[in-house]
């Protein structure tokens, strides 16, 4: 199939950036979207032009490196699929595709489709862990975890941190990402001692990074490659509000 691509090109963080049109010919329907871009890039190199920079690593939908908008859809049109797992058979000959990086104040564009998602790491730094130093752990089976709880925690823990939730959210909020980590740890018995501090610190870190707020539009859930539920956002809000109530509404000690 032949496609027309409009790709965001931006030389570096300071560059203005613009959409540039490319034609790609004879794309196999079995290729993945990133492989289609690989083909384009080889053509560009052949012509002495700089290839389109995009982030990728595992190409198995698990590392969370890849991701950009295709015609207004984070990770493209297939639900539950990262762009590296999106295959060209879902497109048709003659399609015109607009490819843009995630847009968020907290994710500055570094080049073309590559953005800096360091804000996510900093949210984790605020409390997305259980404080247990190496060697301190008790025998694993001393902490039984009811199966439904473990399963639910796993549903949340699956987040790959790709940033699609932020990209699709009309408010540019990071609530799905943050709530997935808060919920993963706050659901488990191991996470209880730090539960409320965690909710407070991580929610506040999210604001500090310049993300938007949650209007409960649920766009994030619709595009999440791991189909993480916005129920976790409600859980996070609950833990946060409870924490505020319990702590006499004082700001938490910064972790």
């Amino acid at each position: 199939m032949n496609l027309t691509l409009h790709v965001w090109r931006q030389k570096g963080p300071a560059d203005e950036g613009r959409m540039v049109q490319y034609e790609v010919k004879d794309v196999s329907e079995h290729a993945s979207f990133l492989e289609m871009l690989d083909v384009l890039n080889q053509q560009l190199i052949g012509r002495g032009e700089e290839p389109v920079a995009f982030e990728h690593d595992c190409r198995e939908g698990i590392c969370g490196s890849c991701g950009f908008m295709i015609n207004g859809d984070a990770h493209g049109p297939m639900p539950g699929t990262t762009v590296c797992q999106l295959h060209m058979r879902h497109f048709k000959d003659g399609d015109v595709l607009h490819i843009e990086p995630w847009r968020s104040r907290a994710f500055p564009v570094l080049k073309d489709l590559v953005v800096d998602r360091g804000a996510f790491d900093r949210i984790i730094q605020a409390g997305g862990f259980i404080s247990v130093a190496t060697g301190e752990a008790p025998e694993a089976n001393l902490i039984p975890v009811p199966k439904p709880v473990a399963d639910r925690a796993m549903d949340a823990a699956q987040c790959i941190g790709c940033g699609a939730c932020v990209a699709q959210c009309p408010n540019g909020a990071a609530s799905l990402f943050t709530s997935a980590k808060v919920s993963h740890l706050n659901l488990l018995p191991q996470g209880q001692p730090e539960r409320f501090d965690r909710a407070l610190s991580m929610v506040e870190a999210m604001d500090r990074e310049g993300f938007g707020y949650c209007s409960n539009h649920a766009e994030c859930e619709a595009v999440c490659p791991k189909e993480i539920s916005i129920d976790f956002i409600a859980r996070m809000n609950r833990d946060y509000l409870k924490a505020k109530a319990q702590r006499g509404m004082k700001t938490p000690l910064q972790t």
Binding site: I130, V132, E136, N141, P146, K147, A150, D151, H184, L188
Partner: peptide, 18 residues
Amino acid sequence: DQCAAQGVPFAREYGGLL
């Protein structure tokens, strides 16, 4: 032991054990 304490959501049996 270490990973379980960190909150790695390992698969569990119905009794809550690993």
